[in-house]
Amino acid sequence: MGEPLNVGIIGCGAIVAQYLKTLPSLPSVNLRAVADLDFSRAEAVAASQDGVRALTVDELLADPEIDTVLNLTIPAAHADVATRAIAAGKHVYGEKPLAANTSQARKVLALADEAGVRVGCAPDTVLGTGIQTARHAIDSGMIGRPISATATMVTPGHERWHPNPDFYYVPGGGPLLDMGPYYVTALVTLLGPVTSVIGAASHTRKERTIGGGPRAGETIPVSIDTHVTGVLVHESGALSTLVMSFDAVQTRSSNIEIHGEQASLTVPDPNYFDGEVSICTLANREIGWDSIPTSAGYIGAGRGYGLADMALTPAGEQHRASGQLAYHVLDVMESLLRSAVDGSSVPVLSTAERPAAVALTSLSEPVSSLAT
């Protein structure tokens, strides 16, 4: 690593547009080719990017120019595409989750270790100024010893806006595996790894109705729980309460709150890279909340910064949006779902170090500074 990566994207669905906004600004990443099972989608993306070729998936994996695959396929295909890319000797950076389950994810990481290639995984939103400013406040002692956190994501369901929402309502989908990676990754970044969980889950409907697009009005079956709640016990002793729902309408609470002995923090939505961090201290409790100036993270960051960080992190050092972190997050979520079935506390057998903090960095600065 340490040199620009020649990247090929596999999967040209809705999420690719967000990456295409960022990748051209990252000198450590050179987008060379795109592929999709629907070749016309790959052609459309390639036509919008100078010097980018549209290939079949097999052609992209065999292309010697491509050293890294950006895996933007649906969750059920993440492990298969990653495994094939690793077998072709390529690094892999994928959308979340790392795989549909921890069994598949372990195989991906083991094969990558054997092949001597790196695995990275979204979300990299935790590298932005929002989560990183909150982390800086915690690490600098502004809230005292962390005690607890709450993380809440509620929505009435993705079928209201997504034209093909089927995969959200089958095993491997659901609110926890879909949206949970943002929140659990943020909690691990802020409070450290999780050692055990206890959870409960439910669902309110056996089918959903697609709200727009060519399939509007079509009903799809629901075969998983669509409301999941639980408690995460962090290695530090802090307790996080998590609520992930495709059944509720809206919430007025902060997406994430962190509570310490001396102060509480409101943390911005981890689906985004920035946002306001506020603090209420014990000494000024009657006065209320104050905003904390932006003090850490990548200013103006977007999707793909985790990939750039992977490119720039020297050999022997762990890049921030790593496969190991993504595996731990997946393990936490899978354990929580198992607890919801068993009705008892479940130990989380994996662990992961908190990624290195990100100093306040402007997009106008050399991207190489992001790995320092």
Rank of each mutant, 00 (worst) to 15 (best):
N6D: 13
G8Y: 07
I10P: 01
G11V: 01
C12D: 02
C12I: 01
V16L: 02
T22A: 10
L23V: 14
P24T: 08
P24Q: 02
P24G: 05
S25K: 14
S25L: 13
A33T: 05
A35C: 03
F39E: 07
R41M: 11
A44P: 03
V45M: 04
V45F: 02
A46S: 09
A46E: 01
A47R: 13
S48L: 11
S48T: 09
Q49C: 15
V52C: 04
V52I: 04
V57H: 00
E59N: 12
P64L: 11
P64A: 07
N71F: 03
I74Q: 07
A77S: 14
A79V: 02
A85G: 15
I86H: 04
K90A: 00
H91Q: 09
Y93V: 09
G94P: 04
E95R: 05
A99W: 09
S103C: 11
S103A: 15
Q104D: 15
Q104C: 10
A105I: 05
A105L: 10
R106F: 05
A115K: 14
G116Q: 08
V119N: 05
G120A: 07
A122Y: 06
A122D: 10
G130R: 03
G130Y: 04
D139C: 06
S140V: 02
T150L: 02
M153V: 09
M153R: 12
H158P: 08
W161A: 12
P163Q: 04
Y168W: 06
P171C: 14
P171D: 15
G174L: 07
P175S: 14
L176N: 05
P181F: 08
Y182G: 00
Y183A: 12
V184K: 00
L190R: 12
G192E: 00
V197S: 01
A201Y: 00
H203G: 03
T204Q: 11
R205T: 08
I210W: 06
G212Q: 14
G213F: 02
G213A: 10
R215V: 03
I220C: 11
V222T: 10
V222W: 05
S223C: 10
L232A: 05
S236E: 05
S240H: 06
S240E: 01
L242N: 01
F246I: 01
D247N: 13
D247Q: 15
N255T: 06
I258A: 01
Q262A: 12
D274M: 03
G275C: 04
E276V: 11
C280K: 14
T281A: 06
T281S: 15
A283K: 10
A283F: 06
I287C: 09
D290P: 00
S291G: 13
Y298W: 14
G300P: 03
A301E: 03
G302R: 01
G302P: 06
G302D: 15
G304K: 01
L307Y: 03
M310P: 03
L312R: 07
T313V: 12
G316N: 13
A321I: 12
S322E: 04
G323M: 07
Q324F: 10
Q324S: 14
A326G: 12
H328C: 08
H328P: 06
L330N: 05
V332C: 10
L336W: 02
A340L: 07
A340S: 15
S345Q: 14
S345P: 04
R354W: 00
P355A: 11
P355F: 07
V358H: 06
T361H: 13
E365D: 13
P366G: 02
P366E: 07
S368V: 11
S369V: 10
